[in-house]
Design a protein around this nucleic acid. Structure first.
Length: 120
RNA sequence: UCAGUCGGCUGGACGGCCGCUCCGGCAAUCACCGAAAGGUGGCCGGGGAGGAAAGUCCGGGCUCCAAGGACAAACGGUGCCGGAUAACGUCCGGCGGGGGCAACCCCAGGGAAAGUGCCACAGAGAGCAGACCGCCGGGGCUUCGGCCCAGGUAAGGGUGAAAGGGUGCGGUAAGAGCGCACCGCGCCUGCGGCAACGCAGGCGGCACGGCAAACCCCACCGGGAGCAAGACCGAAUAGGAGCGGCGUGGGACGCAAGUCCCGGUCCUGUCCGGACUAGUCGCUCGGGUAGGUUGCUGGAGGCGGCGGGUAACCGCAGUCCCAGAAGAAUGGCCGUCGCGCGGAAGGUGUAUCGUGUCUUCCGCCGUACAGAACCCGGCUUACAGGCCGGCUGGCGUA
């Protein structure tokens, strides 16, 4: 599993499907012509959420959720982005892990609010 | 012991499971990603947020850019004196003014006899001072209550942020630095101090109101931009330069450049008219974008010691190496405890109350402010709490 680092990758993922949850919004996008590539995950916590300490803490908790959810149905060749929300600070860890699992299943079942990416 | 004041330190601890990042060592130069530059991957050992890392308000280092040097002008900043420092708007020690019983605290604290300007409202009068009320003697009138006229007067009332020294005595018609004493102010001299300034004496009868966070004057300081600085590597695609291969319709003139005619293609189906008529492929090179590497942490460095200095701080030898990320590591989850607050019970001390102190239990109680981003010195602001020390005042005891 790799981290997303380039700004272009984040912008691309934002055009994919979105699944909202209490603690985060899950965005996902299948990379073109790449069925075997690694799973890549990125995290976004905007300045609106809080100061640097709060943003760091949210990002770390989300990162840990993804790391420990090895059995979750993450798919190869996909880019995932988790956008942190304020609730990620106070919700219990188990609850958030459940939400992540549920969000992934809904996403791959096709229930996400698919936003048609403009063909580039 | 209570109240106050100043300064310094600290910023939870331990354990379990699972991770992140950097450095060093070991090993095949192996595997994977990428066109390349380069990156990722194993095991072992070690390091890994703050007192403000924050705000980005000053001052430096460092880097690039600009510029003959110096000075001046302009603009910006600083502003009692001396010292510290790489430097500062910082710090230390003094001086002056103000506040507090005191410890101590606060002050944009140069120049107002260089010039210009302003001083609202109120008030009679506000910058060559000023008679509204009042006071005073004189003249006139009088219904004997007073009224009028020309004067004198800044002691009193009233206005104001401010009314041209203050208090007292003398003096006078009433008053007035009109005279005197003390205080204040100004000038001169002497003494002390590096200086700001202080002290003493003499002279002056008081002139020189305030505002420079109004313009201004004086002294001193300042080139600009910032690690997204800068350096190196460097695609794809487009464009540029060079070399080579193939190609560049026919004819006339001309040394050549070129011009003209006949063709060909296009505007457009036709006429007329107009435009075009040489590229294309391969290799190499340079600039540069995405991207990557570096800059990147050993420094005005920390620690304790000795010496100098009232202090800020400085010197000497010793010792230590102590974060380097890049959509941004330094953590996530759980347990036990600590600390604080509140409640309950019990013990202890006091004649009693208040209350102090100790032990145990309980609380879906609280445990802050805040995350390095090139590096230092400051300032400012935020902060649950805890600890230590100096000094001052009150009360009690010996």
């Amino acid at each position: 599993m790799e981290r997303l680092r380039q700004r272009a990758d984040f912008l691309a993922a934002a055009t994919g499907s979105k699944i909202p949850a209490a603690a985060f919004v899950l965005q996902a996008r299948k990379r073109k012509d790449d069925d075997e590539g690694p799973v890549r995950v990125g995290f976004t916590v905007t300045k609106k959420i809080g100061n640097a300490v709060v943003r760091n803490r949210i990002r770390r908790r989300l990162r840990e959720i993804v790391r420990l959810a090895a059995t979750a149905p993450l798919r190869a060749g996909y880019d995932y982005v988790l956008v942190g929300r304020r609730a990620a600070l106070s919700l219990t860890f188990a609850r958030m892990a459940e939400e992540f699992d549920g969000a992934l299943r809904r996403l791959h079942a096709g229930h996400g609010k698919a936003i048609r990416a403009s063909v580039s």
